[in-house]
Amino acid sequence: MYIKKILWAIALIGLVVFGLFAYYIYGAMFQPNTNFNNETAYIYVPTNATYAEVREQLAPLLDDIDSFDALAQQKKYTTNIKAGRFAISKGMNNNDIINSIRSKNLPLKIAFNNQNSLADLAGRIGSQIEADSLSLYKAMTDKDFLSKNGFTKATALGMYLPNSYEFFWNTSAEAFRERMLTEYNRFWTDTRKAQAKKQNLSPSEVITLASIVHEESKQADEQPRVAGVYLNRLRLGMALQADPTLKFAAYQLPKYKNTVIRRVLNVHKEINSPYNTYMYNGLPPGPIAMPDLSAIKAVLNPEKHSYLYFAADANRIGYHKFAKTLAQHNNNAREYQRYLSSQGINK
Rank of each mutant, 00 (worst) to 15 (best):
D96Q: 14
K82F: 11
Q74E: 02
D66M: 15
I43M: 02
K76N: 15
T47C: 03
N80V: 13
V45N: 00
V54L: 14
Y77N: 01
R55I: 09
A70Q: 13
D96R: 06
L71R: 06
P46A: 06
T79N: 05
M92S: 13
I43R: 02
L62W: 07
N95G: 11
K75M: 11
T47P: 02
I98N: 07
F68A: 09
T47E: 00
N93I: 12
I88W: 01
D96Y: 13
Y44A: 03
L71Q: 03
D64R: 12
N95W: 09
K82G: 02
I43V: 14
R55W: 12
N80M: 01
I88K: 01
N94I: 13
L62P: 07
I81C: 02
Y42W: 14
V54Y: 01
Y44I: 08
A59F: 00
L58K: 04
Q57T: 11
I43W: 02
Y42E: 03
V54Q: 04
Y42G: 04
S89L: 06
I88A: 13
E53L: 14
A72L: 06
D63Y: 15
L62D: 03
Y51P: 04
A83P: 10
P46M: 06
R55V: 13
V45F: 08
L71W: 02
N80P: 07
D69C: 07
R85Q: 05
T50C: 13
D69Q: 02
N94V: 10
R55N: 14
E56A: 15
K90E: 10
K82N: 08
Y51M: 01
S67F: 12
M92Y: 07
A72S: 01
Y44Q: 08
T79V: 12
M92C: 14
S89N: 15
P60W: 05
Y51K: 12
S67G: 10
Y51Q: 00
A72V: 10
L62T: 10
P46V: 08
Q74F: 15
L61H: 00
S67H: 10
K82E: 03
I98F: 06
A49H: 04
D69P: 03
D64W: 02
D63C: 11
V54K: 04
R85C: 13
D63P: 01
L61F: 07
I88G: 05
P60L: 04
F86C: 04
G91F: 10
L62F: 09
A70I: 08
A83M: 09
D69F: 05
Y77C: 05
